[in-house]
């Protein structure tokens, strides 16, 4: 596993992708069962379409959150920490869509001997449509700096570090 440090990140750098491939009704059912979410729009096609007027059963928004968390966790590596993440839901994903998480670094900042990397993130389907967008703020160690504390403790010096308001 790669162990990226702050010096490995630069503004404009691609984050990911993490490609999940085609998400079928079986994948959606597996997720719904694993979190015991019995909302029928996620596994009952007749209910989703005839009753709720949806195009098909929906891929859970909660599942999509974890894919974006994984995108950032993997990009920050085993020494980094995903501090903040934001999700905005732009459109539905339905059974049969292929889901890919990706992003780019938009700011890097060193504060108190730690590196902070701000990213724009999104989920795209096979048609290039963005269903979920957002931003994330990760913490990584400097090449010759101290480890990122775990558990992560928010110091007063970090207070000015926020996710971009428009993401």
């Amino acid at each position: 596993m790669q162990r990226p440090c702050f010096e490995d990140f630069a503004v404009g750098m691609a984050i990911g992708p993490v490609a999940k491939g085609q998400i079928t009704t079986a994948h959606i059912m597996r997720w719904s069962a694993s979190v015991e979410n019995w909302h029928r729009i996620h596994y009952d096609q007749r209910f989703a379409t005839a009753h709720d007027g949806l195009p098909d059963v929906l891929i859970n928004g909660s599942w999509k959150q974890h894919v974006l968390v994984q995108l950032m966790k993997d990009a920050l590596g085993p020494d980094g920490w995903l501090w903040k993440i934001r999700f905005r839901y732009q459109r539905m994903d339905v059974a049969g869509d292929s889901i890919t998480a990706l992003g780019e670094a938009i700011a890097t900042q060193e504060v108190d001997r730690l590196g902070f990397v701000t990213c724009r993130i999104r989920l795209e389907n096979q048609r290039g449509e963005i269903s979920t967008s957002g931003a994330a703020l990760g913490v990584v160690k400097l090449r010759d700096g101290p480890d990122v504390p775990y558990p992560f403790v928010v110091k007063p010096e970090y207070r000015g570090l926020a996710l971009p308001a428009d993401a």
């Binding site: 928004g61 959150q65 920490w81 995903l82 501090w83 903040k84 993440i85 934001r86 999700f87 905005r88 839901y89 957002g134 775990y150 558990p151 992560f152 403790v153 928010v154 996710l163």
Partner: peptide, 11 residues
């Protein structure tokens, strides 16, 4: 409507 989430992680 789900207006989105913002999450902070500590451990």
């Amino acid at each position: 409507l789900n207006g989105g989430n913002e999450i902070e992680f500590f451990r």
